[in-house]
């Protein structure tokens, strides 16, 4: 049994490294971390002022993370979630409480290296107190078979003069089916930034629904999406910013690059219900700019290398 756990941990670390993570983080006592494979917690490290409370369930793990009032966590927390078999379901219910005047950065790598039919659901609830911050990055590493269904839902509230940034990245391997939803309220002076960067291939399906609600005076939101599609992939991006309070400001910036027989749809929705608020948007769907490609070809790159360089930049 112990050998199996050690092998599983080693395989998770291998996939973590392939997705761009630094495995040394998990042996550094100063770096808070958690490793979850399926519904097993394989490792956990807390640091002063940070409490991690995992509870295994039938299909996954419920995790409560609390950053105590006034604590700023020095090193970004490393999270590694994944499913190693070809088939399976993983449901992570995560609640993050960043108390007043507290702050943390976190990088989560979700790895499904052998996926043929995997469902990964991440239900995230984020509560930021006042004068606090939370930067969360979620990086996915999938195999090239595309049999993954990824469903990350994030609900949250950003307290007064607090900052929440969330970045979702999936550019290695096949997407499979991706269904992202954000719904975040922002209080007075708070700031919300949501970034989604996805490279869809084969018959991948991408659905992104991001919503920022500016409920407090001078609240701000930026919602930025970059989706690159090729082959027969499909995407739909719905970005919504509603400004309810005076001097609140929002901006939606969506770009989808369509190649081959892929299909993209972008729906920016901006609503203002206070005459002193302002929300702007920009959306672009189209092929890669031939001038960008030819510029790189004139530096000696092949067309394939040039496309990769341009796409990598867009998804950086």
């Amino acid at each position: 049994m112990a050998t199996k756990i050690i092998d599983e941990y080693a395989e998770m670390m291998k996939a973590y490294e392939q997705s761009g993570g630094n495995v040394g983080e998990f042996s550094n006592p100063n770096v808070p971390s958690i490793v979850i494979s399926g519904n097993k917690v394989l490792g956990k490290n807390e640091v002063k002022g940070l409490i991690i409370e995992p509870t295994p369930t039938k299909d996954g793990v419920d995790v409560k993370i609390t950053v105590k009032k006034g604590t700023k966590i020095l090193y970004p927390m490393a999270l590694c979630f994944g499913v190693l078999p070809k088939e399976g379901v993983q449901v992570i219910n995560m609640e993050a409480y960043i108390e007043d005047e507290a702050g943390m950065n976190a990088v989560s790598h979700c790895v499904f290296p052998n996926a043929e039919h995997i469902v990964h659901k991440m239900n995230y609830k984020v509560h930021l107190g006042n004068h606090s911050f939370f930067r969360y990055k979620e990086i996915h590493f999938h195999g090239d078979k595309g049999g993954v269904e990824v469903v990350p839902y994030t609900e949250g509230e950003v307290g007064e003069n607090s900052y929440f940034e969330s970045t979702f990245t999936l550019k290695e391997g096949r997407v499979g089916k991706l269904d992202i939803k954000y719904d975040v309220d922002v209080k007075k002076g708070g700031k919300l930034e949501l970034y989604s960067k996805v490279w869809a291939k084969g018959n991948d399906e991408v659905n992104i629904e991001e919503k920022g609600n500016l409920k407090g005076e001078e609240a701000k939101a930026l919602i930025k999406s970059r989706v690159v599609l090729q082959d027969n992939s499909h995407s739909k991006v719905l970005s919504v910013v509603n400004a309810y309070a005076p001097y609140s400001r929002g901006h939606v910036d969506c770009m989808e690059v369509v190649q081959d027989d892929s299909v993209a749809e972008a729906v920016p929705v901006v609503g203002v219900s206070n005459s002193l608020a302002k929300v702007t948007h920009e959306a672009a769907i189209g092929s890669l700019d031939s001038k960008e490609i030819e510029t790189l070809e004139a530096r000696g790159l092949t067309e394939e290398e040039a496309i990769k360089a341009v796409v990598s930049g867009l998804l950086k």
Binding site: R226, D289, E292, T295, E297, A298, R299, G300, V310, G313
Partner: peptide, 17 residues
């Protein structure tokens, strides 16, 4: 380009990222 020639555009392209 591989043979050794290149072009500097009058209005160069922008590259995000």
């Amino acid at each position: 380009a591989k043979l050794g020639m290149t072009l500097a555009w009058q209005t160069p392209a922008s590259f995000e990222g």
